[in-house]
C-alpha cells in the first residue's frame, strides 16, 4: 500500500515550469531516491510535498487522504518530516531544544517522555555530546546531522532528506548512511535527494530521475544508472 502519492503535480514560478506533471507512489516503508541535474526541480518537489510551497495543479495524498490544501504544520503532524538542503537550525536554541520543539509539536511527544526521546535521537545521530550547544554555532557536518535528527524527532512516517550527504568526507558520509539505514530499518519511508550517488544507491530501492521538472525515468537503481538517457542527461556522457 502506498503511503504517499503524487498525482500530476505541477508548479511554475512565473513562466518557468519547475515541476511538470509529476506522479509517483511511495510504498509504506520504501526508500526512494531522487536524482537529476541542478535546477531539475528536486528541492521544489520536496517543498510541494511538505506544503512549504502551494501546488498549482495536481494532488498529493498521504495514506489515501488528500493533503494538497493542508498547511506545512498539518502535514508535519500527519507524518511528513523533512530536512533542508541548506541547514536551517533554530540558531539561538540549543541542539537539544531544536529537537524538543520538533518532538513536542510535530511529534506530539508528551512533556514527560520528550527529554529521553530527544536524547535517544541525539545519540543515534551522534550529536549527544553537543546537546546543550547553541545550534547556530555548529559546523557543517553537525548542522546536517541536526537537520536529520530534527526531522526524526517529528516522528515521521515519511522522511524527506535533501542532499544530506553533500560536502561530507567519505567517513562522515558512511556514518550518515548507517544512520539512514537504521531509520529505514525502523519502518520509516524515505525519499532522498542526493548527488552522492554511491551513498544514495546503497540505501534506496528505487530511483526517480527528474529533468526539467519532469520524471525522466523510474526504476531500480542499477537499471536507472545503466540507462543511456540518464547517463547523457545526468552524468553528461555523450551518446
Amino acid at each position: 500500500m502506498s503511503i504517499l502519492s503524487l498525482k500530476a503535480v505541477s508548479k511554475s514560478f512565473g513562466a518557468l515550469k519547475v515541476t511538470d506533471d509529476v506522479s509517483f507512489d511511495l510504498g509504506s516503508g520504501e526508500a526512494l531516491g531522487i536524482i537529476g541535474p541542478n535546477g531539475a526541480g528536486k528541492s521544489t518537489l520536496f517543498n510541494l510535498i511538505t506544503g512549504n510551497f502551494p501546488v498549482d495543479k495536481g494532488q498529493i495524498f498521504l495514506d489515501g487522504l488528500d493533503v494538497t490544501r493542508e498547511s506545512a504544520m498539518m502535514r508535519c503532524a500527519s507524518g511528513i518530516g523533512r530536512s533542508f538542503q541548506i541547514p536551517q537550525p533554530f540558531g539561538r536554541l540549543s541542539v537539544y531544544e531544536n529537537l524538543l520543539v520538533a518532538a513536542r509539536f510535530g511529534g506530539t511527544v508528551p512533556a514527560t517522555e520528550a527529554p529521553d526521546f530527544c536524547m535517544d535521537i541525539l545519540e543515534r545521530t551522534r550529536l549527544a555530546t553537543l546537546a546543550n550547544r547553541e545550534a547556530g554555532g555548529l559546523p557543517l557536518l553537525q548542522r546536517k546531522r541536526l537537520e536529520l535528527a530534527r526531522a526524526m524527532a517529528t516522528r515521521p512516517r515519511v522522511i524527506l532528506l535533501d542532499e544530506i550527504a553533500g560536502g561530507l568526507t567519505e567517513a562522515e558520509c558512511r556514518e550518515l548512511v548507517d544512520t539512514i539505514r537504521e531509520i529505514h530499518a525502523g519502518g520509516t519511508a524515505i525519499i532522498w535527494i542526493e548527488h552522492v550517488l554511491h551513498a544514495l544507491n546503497s540505501v534506496v530501492e528505487r530511483l526517480i530521475v527528474l529533468n526539467f521538472g519532469q520524471v525522466l525515468m523510474a526504476g531500480p537503481p542499477e537499471e536507472v544508472m545503466a540507462s543511456r538517457a540518464v547517463q547523457e542527461i545526468y552524468l553528461g556522457i555523450e551518446a
Partner: peptide, 23 residues
C-alpha cells in the same frame, strides 16, 4: 512552556518551525 519554545523557534526560523509542526 511548549508554546514558548515554539515561539523561540519561530523567532529563529519561521519556515523551519512550520516544517516541524509549529503554527
Amino acid at each position: 512552556s511548549r508554546m514558548g519554545l515554539g515561539l523561540q523557534a519561530i523567532r529563529d526560523n519561521a519556515n523551519a518551525a512550520r516544517s516541524v509542526g509549529v503554527d
